[in-house]
Computed example of a mutant assay.
Amino acid sequence: MRPTEHGFVGPLAGELEEYIRFKASMGRHGATRVRVLRSFDRHCLEHGAVRLERGVVERWIAHRIDANPGGCRSWFSYIRDFGRWMRLAHDPDAYVLSDQWKAGSPRPTPYLLTDREAALFLRAAGTLESPSPWAWQSRAFFMLMACCGLRTREVRRLAVGHVDHKARSIDVVDSKAGRSRRLPVGDEVAAELLECDQRSRERFGDDRPAFFVTSTGNPVSPGMPGVVFRRVWTRAGLEWPQAGKRPRPYDFRHRFAFANIERWTRDGVDVMAMLPYLAAYMGHAGIDSTLYYVHASPDFMDGYADLVADAERVVPETEEP
């Protein structure tokens, strides 16, 4: 068999190629996804696997783990998502990787930002006094996390050319597991990004290495958003917890997820139908990761178990909302 466009050659090459095209149609061009599924494709070829069955998938996983016992296992999400897509598109009996196979690494418990805290914080971010670019870029930086649910590193790595002021969209390129996505942004966020860009161009010219920079024009370091976050928190007149869980920039991403789901619940919207859109917007490989972000919301716990139990019937992912 001749290799497909993405190099698949096994019995499931056609389905794998179709799946990759499906993801690409939504702007999901992650090279890691293709590389991982090529490995699975070779496994299928070697073992003559013509269907997506449990034994085939789990033997391949066990082989990869044996080859790299201490490695990151985020690639589990790719084969799980492929299984869900197969159920929808080709084979209702296709195996979807079970929950016993998890990527591991315990996640920290989020600090649950209230509406009041978020509002006061973003207001204070717009009046931060600093000789550095944070004086005009802190509000735009944290609004991308609060209003778009971006990861901290996605905001730090945002390039100037990845912000389209005319189309009011941003490109998140080569993020977690090599995935990329294009996101529309609201009017308020778009206006903030435009003002931030204009002021940064006045200070650093048109060739700065990142959208958000330091006083020397260099990209923002990983630890700096946390430092600025605490300064803004204090400026907002919010009390910094002396014990227990303390707030951090990433908590805006948690809030974005469960706030959307709680709003849909209040409005009577079918949450299960909307979860794939939210997962795609947040850059998740599937809805399992999205559900994690909402589990900590005390107002949503009553419905959380039902969502998890019903998650198997959800379409993998669709276009961004």
Rank of each mutant, 00 (worst) to 15 (best):
E5S: 08
A24W: 08
S25R: 14
G27L: 10
R33V: 14
R35K: 15
R35D: 13
F40R: 01
D41M: 04
D41T: 01
L45E: 15
E46N: 13
G48K: 09
E53F: 00
E53P: 04
E53C: 04
R54E: 15
V56I: 13
R59K: 11
R64P: 03
A67S: 15
P69H: 11
G71S: 11
F82M: 01
A89N: 00
D91T: 00
W101L: 02
W101R: 02
G104M: 10
P106T: 08
R107V: 11
T109Q: 13
E117M: 06
L122A: 05
L122W: 04
G126K: 04
E129V: 15
P133M: 07
F142E: 09
C147G: 08
L150W: 03
R157K: 12
A159Q: 14
D164R: 06
H165V: 10
R168K: 13
S169K: 13
I170V: 15
S175M: 04
K176S: 09
G178W: 09
S180E: 06
E188C: 07
A190Y: 09
A190H: 08
D197A: 15
Q198W: 09
E202R: 15
E202H: 11
F204D: 00
D207Y: 07
V220T: 11
V220H: 10
G226I: 04
F229H: 10
V232E: 04
R235W: 03
G237F: 00
P247R: 01
Y250T: 07
D251R: 05
F252N: 02
F252T: 02
H254S: 02
F256Q: 01
F258G: 00
E262W: 00
D267Q: 14
V269I: 14
M272E: 12
M274K: 14
A285P: 03
I287Q: 11
I287H: 08
T290N: 07
S297W: 00
D299L: 06
F300R: 07
F300Y: 08
Y304L: 10
D310V: 00
P316G: 01
